[in-house]
Amino acid sequence: MKKLLQIAGGALLVYIVIVMGIAVIPAIDLSKTPPGPGVKPLTALQAEGSAVYAANGCAYCHTQQVRPLAEDKVFGRPSAPGDFAYQTPELLGSERTGPDLSTIGSSKPSDVWQYIHLFDPRAVVPESVMPNFKFLFHVVTTVPPGETAVPVPAAFAPKQGEVIPTRQAKALVAYLLSLKQTPMPGYAMNGGMGGMTSAAPAAAPAPTAAASGGYSYDAAKGQSLFMANCSACHQATGEGIPGAFPPLKGNAAVDADNPTLHIHTVLQGAHGVTIGGVAYSSVMPPFADQLSDADIANIVNYERSSWGNHAKPATAADVAAVRAKGP
């Protein structure tokens, strides 16, 4: 018995000491991490949404941790300890089959986009392998007062009836839209939103000169920036989603010779605008903080020269001029 006691008791004691040192004591200490500047607790509805997020295992494919690596810049600034002060259970995740969601509330601020994407991810991202969450929605024949139907594109909508979100879907979207990073001086690698490139406008690579008429535009760069930042709503076809996101194809602002309104919209975002007689309720995020003048010029020029649009190209100087005027 003595021998058994020595081995089992000894191994158990050693283990308890190690566990206290490596896990329990650091955990007690880290649990007291104060919230970072501007980090606020979730509202009741957002907290309910966080529970829906956890219950349906969103964290198995989506992380909420931005690493201090160049490849993670697209998701925001590196996560700071204070970002997680109110996140219990922790939802940092261990796999990134889908994108990180630390700043999804600022990179995809439109609740309409979130609803369509949850109802059928392939309606807005054709290559997505995310499951649909139709069970978070009702299909009704008449929309009850106080509810708004989700403008699901016809190809993905139910054959009959209107799609309205359940309370769970509303809570989940409220939670997703709450996922933003607060600015942290000295910590910012870009503006804290889902941008592709560095924040400093001057740091952008010089556009390569295109052959035509003394105006430089990097078509490949423009297309990749468009795919990364714009196509989730406006779609790769430039046709948008009827009733939800306006088309850029044949869009008066995009196809106009004066690029000011087009550039202004990309820089400052928009919401509640009427385009081609259709009123759009969804919110477009501003890109001024995360894209350089040259990048925005590349994007608008890609849009101005694609899908049958033939507008006069803009230059980085045009973007700088509109930027200087402010919102």
């Binding site: 650091p26 955990a27 007690i28 007291k32 997680f84 002060a85 109110y86 996140q87 219990t88 922790e90």
Partner: peptide, 8 residues
């Protein structure tokens, strides 16, 4: 005893 980062 485990909240936020402590839970991580």
């Amino acid at each position: 005893y485990q909240h936020g980062l402590g839970q991580v």
